[in-house]
Design a protein around this nucleic acid. Structure first.
Lengths: 210, 210
DNA sequence: TTTTGTGTTAAACGTATGTTTGAAACAGTT
DNA sequence: AACTGTTTCAAACATACGTTTAACACAAAA
């Protein structure tokens, strides 16, 4: 058999390098060197650098959203009439995070940093790709949060949702360096679970402010 | 006389283009074309593109931090013994933001996006430059927040402070695209001032959760 | 008027990038 | 062994970039 693992090696290298340096600053030569494959392999297997960026996202995001969806499906089957609280919704997401990051924690930080970059560096193709590919889960979460916060006006809810997103993405992406600071300044360790446990009440309180 | 305004024209163009497309994605040719000056003018007046980026930041960063500091100084002179609340602290920051962009609505959006980009794109020279420029005001704000949240244990306060930072940085850096979504989905406009007005209570509620 | 210094300009330089190419290597099938 | 489709490889290609250069413009000083 000896099936080629070139594609996987490229994705692994690209994922890490994109997260570290951004998209524009990471060249295909750097990626292929790190992956130890030929330069032309990216264009052969993915077609273009843009397509590679999208593939990096797809590999992480698809199983992640599936985990959230199946959790929500389960809950809706068991208690169909009882609407979810904000805390419950957030817990499904955090459980999905824990599920995906199980095995290698590094990938979670990498992906969150990528997600942040996608918003700031995504010149169009990436934003469009994410929007078209993951519209479903986004709308579902948004509608659940709407039911959980009936008194909020829609525009304010939209913004608060993104405030939550920002706090989460930023924290996850800079988790490693922040943990180092905590260890140095407070002589304590903050595990990933503890950080998430601190983050959730912060988010829940924020979205229900006033 | 006929004093050259080339430097100002370059800074204006660069500021706007950086905010719109990011640093790496904005070429000197685009900047000098928009500024209607010769390509070589940037290297002549600033030395390099990196130096131009720092100059763009310096032009608004210096008055910005001065505004915060003087606001805090004033308040401490008038009510020296009464500690500030979290809301008050955040309001000094947001007032400084508004003050820097006074008269020019567009400038606020540019400023916010640049501030956000500094967090996500500031890899080497920019981060170092900002750190040396920002350290004083950062420490001062941190110490004020400590006094405003005496019941919080230090580690949790550290994390919540960075949750706030994350929500802010993310929102600022992706403000433009989020505003477009709001306009499309809700047929309303969210001005930068309104967004900040929504962000502050979210942050204050979050840091005081439970 | 000549000189000097500052700023501008068009052109070129060197380098790095994403992409394409055509030959070679390989694996599986007949 | 011969054939076939897929994958790899070194090399080249075209383009865009930041930077440098040397000639030029022009105002102020000598």
């Amino acid at each position: 058999m000896s099936q080629s693992d070139t594609v996987k090696r490229i994705l692994d290298a690209a994922e890490e390098l994109f997260a570290e340096h951004g998209f524009a600053e990471t060249s295909l030569r750097t990626i292929t060197t790190k992956a130890d494959v030929n330069l032309a392999a990216v264009n052969y297997h993915f077609g273009s650098k843009k397509a590679l960026i999208q593939a990096v996202f797809g590999r992480f995001l698809t199983p992640f959203t599936k985990l959230i969806e199946s959790g929500l499906d389960n809950r809706e089957l068991q208690k169909p009439d009882q609407p979810l609280t904000v805390e419950e919704i957030l817990q499904f997401v955090s459980r999905a995070i824990a599920g995906v990051s199980e095995g290698d924690r590094k990938r979670l930080a990498i992906f969150m940093r990528l997600a942040g970059l996608a918003y700031t560096q995504g010149q169009g193709h990436l934003r469009k790709y994410l929007q078209s590919e993951y519209r479903g889960i986004f709308r579902r979460l948004m509608s659940l949060i709407t039911k959980a916060t009936p008194d909020l006006n829609p525009v304010e809810r939209f913004w608060r949702f993104h405030f939550m997103l920002g706090a989460t993405a930023f924290t996850m992406s800079s988790m490693e360096s922040l943990q180092a600071i905590v260890e140095h300044d407070f002589e304590t360790q903050s595990t990933e679970e503890e950080i998430v446990a601190m983050l959730l009440p912060f988010l829940a309180a924020g979205i229900r402010a006033q």
